[in-house]
Design a protein around this nucleic acid. Structure first.
Ligand code: MN
Ligand code: MN
Ligand code: ZN
Ligand code: ZN
Lengths: 125, 125
DNA sequence: GTTCCTTTTGCGAATGATTCGCAAAATCAA
DNA sequence: TTGATTTTGCGAATCATTCGCAAAAGGAAC
């Protein structure tokens, strides 16, 4: 584990919310080059130490977000107004996916689920 | 409804699988400029005539896929080997999302769910 | 701690999907 | 028709991400 990879891992572990590459860069300061951030994220994801999903938000465009792979697999909500993520808790769709596998014959190795709308703070605005 | 928008709508309605912008372009032939394809897709999505999701596949990178908004809302599986989509059937996660709303206080306006792995044809390779 | 080999990094250039600016073309309403 | 509004084509610009490559770092025997 190199210094850069270690730092990225710790940033994700401590975040408590999905981070895009730029978020990680900011938190890493001048520790390493942006390209190394990307490479470290890939490195961690390949080894299951990080997970990612791609979210499209009207305001920010398409961005890939990363979370630590050390926490329990969970899903996220993205607020279209304040652009914060809300933790929706541990994954509840595994049984449904298993049904879908039975129905269609596919073998599911991974899935992406996220929701968007307004968080409770932004709802009445 | 202009000629270009009409054509894009018909392409999505007839597709039976999610299409990326390039797929739509190919099917539209020289009917219009690529920029007009993108603009038409946005136009249709704003009006609920199309839906999209962003999928990241190791082999193809990050791409946005569109489906007709006229069919029932459903979810898709993406094969990591042959890169075809398999229809997973009508959405089954609405009740779970409603529970998540109750648990967290967020208001969900849309959600994205897709799975990936190997389709039945690619499984034994 | 020197030597040789493998891996990682920085830096700048390239990519590729998508978006923009703007003037021409098409639509629409009166 | 006419003038206003919307849409389109085309090329340039964006922007996140990736690449190429040479320098730097790390590692395992001598
Ligand atoms: Mn956002
Ligand atoms: Mn693919
Ligand atoms: Zn909010
Ligand atoms: Zn397949």
């Amino acid at each position: 584990m190199t210094k850069a990879r270690q730092a990225v891992q710790e940033i994700l572990d401590a975040a408590g919310t999905p981070l895009c590459a730029l978020d990680v860069e900011e938190r890493a300061g001048s520790l390493c080059d942006p390209a190394t951030i990307y490479r470290s994220l890939h490195y961690l994801e390949e080894r299951g130490l990080a997970e990612s999903f791609v979210l499209h938000c009207e305001a920010h465009g398409t961005e890939r977000y990363y979370v630590s792979g050390k926490a329990q697999h969970r899903h996220w909500f993205h607020c279209e107004r304040c652009h914060r993520f809300v933790d929706l808790g541990a994954c509840r769709v595994e049984p449904i996916l298993r049904d879908m596998e039975d129905d269609t014959g596919v073998t599911i190795r991974s899935h992406t689920l996220y929701a968007s709308g307004f968080c409770s703070a932004c709802r009445g605005l």
